[in-house]
Computed example of a mutant assay.
Amino acid sequence: MNGAVGPARTVFVLTGAGISAESGLGTFRDAGGAWTRLDPMKVATPEAFAADPVLVHDFYNGRRRDALAAKPNAAHVALARLETGLAEQGGRLFLCTQNVDDLHERAGSRRVVHMHGELLKARCTACGTAFAWQDDLGLETPCPHCGRRGEMRPDVVWFGEMPMHLDTIDEALAEADLFVAVGTSGAVYPAAGYVAQARAFGIPTLALNLEAADNAGMFEATRLGPASRTVPAWVEEILGGRA
């Protein structure tokens, strides 16, 4: 379904793997995605890390290198422009991403809430300190804070762990005038439930996806196509007051 969405001053945007796919970073649940080739229970859980930390480190070291090599695409750049444009108009963008890459930041977005953590950060399980991190991690990597070895892990949310910043996200959604999901599968909770939460608040909802998500029926309006095309077009509408 296509449709116009009323004027918005406070916009909540949720992004998923689909927005980074055009930058060369693979998705997870689509055909050919990471979880069709790998069992996530073996590389993306606390239990997997305890059982085979070398395998888990190898997996995330590869993902980290891929993220560093990728470049933001037109969709990332458009959302950075939306943040600036809304602020100039007295509005606000709340950008919440399920992605652990830093492409939003490199495109120019200043405020990004990473609900599933950040691949370019590492955390020590011994002392709990997190650090900016671009190098490989391994069993011999010492914690820069406490010096312990074998305790460093990617600062990402694994299956079975609680997503980050949930209170902040809930507060921002309650204050929004428009909820937009970009490149999301609609299969991962709690993020997949935010559209229902927005509808309960009476907030207009819009999906910008390559194809219909699992929760597509919850959205009032949907625009299908590559994020690099649909997102810039929608941003121009918002900033021009045509949506």
Rank of each mutant, 00 (worst) to 15 (best):
M1I: 01
M1C: 03
G3A: 08
V5S: 04
P7I: 03
A8H: 11
T10K: 15
V13Y: 04
A17V: 03
E22A: 08
L25Y: 01
T27R: 03
F28M: 08
D30G: 14
A31K: 11
G32D: 12
G32W: 06
G33I: 12
G33S: 12
G33P: 12
A34Y: 10
W35F: 14
W35N: 07
K42E: 14
V43S: 03
E47T: 02
A48C: 11
A48K: 12
F49K: 00
A51Y: 05
D52Y: 07
P53T: 07
L55M: 14
V56T: 05
H57N: 11
D58N: 13
F59R: 02
Y60P: 03
N61L: 02
A67L: 02
L68P: 07
A69V: 00
N73G: 12
N73S: 08
H76P: 13
L79Y: 10
E83G: 07
T84M: 02
L86E: 08
G90H: 13
L95N: 15
C96V: 15
C96S: 04
Q98P: 12
Q98T: 09
N99C: 13
H104M: 11
H104A: 06
H104V: 07
E105V: 08
A107P: 09
R111E: 15
V112H: 07
V112D: 05
V113L: 10
H114R: 04
M115V: 15
E118I: 08
L120Y: 02
L120Q: 14
K121T: 11
A122C: 01
A126C: 05
C127A: 04
G128C: 06
A130H: 12
A132W: 09
A132K: 14
L137P: 04
G138V: 10
T141W: 08
T141I: 09
C143M: 04
P144G: 06
G147L: 01
G147P: 02
R148N: 10
R153I: 04
D155P: 05
D155V: 09
V157T: 12
V157K: 00
W158G: 02
W158F: 12
M164Y: 13
M164A: 14
H165N: 11
L166F: 03
T168P: 00
T168H: 06
I169R: 08
E171R: 15
A172Q: 11
A172S: 12
A174D: 13
E175H: 02
F179Q: 01
A181F: 14
V182L: 12
T184S: 03
T184L: 01
A191L: 04
G193Q: 10
G193W: 05
G193S: 14
Y194F: 15
Q197K: 14
A198D: 08
A200G: 14
G202A: 13
P204N: 11
N209D: 12
L210D: 08
E211I: 03
E211P: 01
F219W: 14
F219A: 06
T222K: 10
G225S: 03
P226M: 10
A227N: 02
S228Y: 03
R229F: 09
T230Y: 10
W234Y: 11
W234C: 01
V235G: 07
E236M: 02
G240V: 07
G240R: 02
R242Q: 06
A243P: 00
